[in-house]
Write a protein that binds this DNA or RNA. Structure first.
Lengths: 178, 178
DNA sequence: AAGGTTTTTGCAACTGGTTGCAATTAATCG
DNA sequence: CGATTAATTGCAACCAGTTGCAAAAACCTT
């Protein structure tokens, strides 16, 4: 149940409405977590019911915007969870299944799809590089920033990893299917 | 829905019972997919109901062992799916959430957990290296083997990636919390 | 032969994530 | 001012994955 904790983290950095959170997820937490707005709303409601966060309605906004803030109980819960530990996240990647399947059923047009994904990973890497240039052009001074940078670098290297792997897969397909 | 296709791939390589599949998942497909036996049984039943696979009861076995085989419809479905394409798998890793959260709530004992995970990734990498030495000591001749090797290398590099990241995170924590 | 252990399969309940749609309210446009 | 659009929240139904438990059949022990 890490969506909860991702939300608490984001809200501690800055109180926000559900939709703002959804957007922030897209722009800054998305290199290691993602969530739809429904998920976010549901989790916010639950956390409010459990007393981890509070919400106040915002005036001068369309719809019925609510700003959410973390309560002491919420911060406590987040701290507890950080120390809790756990196993590495189980891996589940359809592309790797596809590669293996293509080996078994013979050429089935995987190369196009590999190239399409490659393009997406390139785009993400470029975006992260912009973040890096903007936020970390000089090495971070405080602990929190240093940790944020570690996470960004993890995102960057993750994209590198995929681009490398896709290139390798494409080279193999190319070699055998000329 | 890739569990289905992972199972079809595994069954095309060799017909098997549900439990055998669960074990094979642990030993050889686990570097990019994983599944519990419940999941596997449920999916096998569904696929049988849909006519993608058939099963024959095996004599001389404990319990009511059933061997599953892929039918032509199943192979067709797998081939269709391989060519189908799709976006990269959405990323969801609690450890990255933890790192960021630790930045926000201050030291909360994350380092131990980082070291524990590091150990697990080292173990996995060592295992994959054994697979590599055993199955790919000379470069693979046929297409299917070459693709299997690509997938294994992806697993290996994935472990490398994590070890590197965890080391970096530990270095940061070490620097700021001496 | 009785009783336990292992292998194999499975049900049921739950949690988390996804998709499609709708309701409310404010801002904007003609 | 009325109609349209955008922002914000949410319901409901569904799908996939997880956990805990148990049943059946063979095998193993004493």
């Amino acid at each position: 149940m890490s969506l909860r904790h991702a939300l608490l983290t984001a809200l501690l950095e800055k109180p926000a409405s559900g939709l703002e959170l959804a957007k922030r997820f897209d722009r800054s937490i998305a290199y290691f977590w993602n969530a739809t707005h429904q998920q976010i709303y549901r989790e916010l409601s639950r956390m409010e019911a459990e007393g981890l966060i509070e919400s106040t309605p915002e005036e001068n906004a369309r719809g019925v915007k609510k700003i959410h803030r973390v309560l002491p109980e919420g911060r406590k819960e987040l701290k507890r969870w950080v120390g809790e530990g756990g196993d590495p996240a189980p891996l589940r990647d359809p592309m790797m299944v596809r590669l293996r399947a293509e080996g078994v059923v013979g050429p089935a047009g995987l190369a196009d799809s590999l190239r399409a994904q490659r393009k997406q990973h390139l785009a993400k890497r470029a975006l992260y590089r912009e973040f890096e240039a903007k936020d970390f052009s000089k090495s971070p001074a405080d602990r929190a920033a240093a940790l944020r940078y570690v996470v960004l670098k993890a995102g960057l290297k993750y994209e590198d990893y995929w681009i490398e792997m896709l290139d390798e897969a494409l080279a193999v397909l190319d070699e055998f299917d000329h």
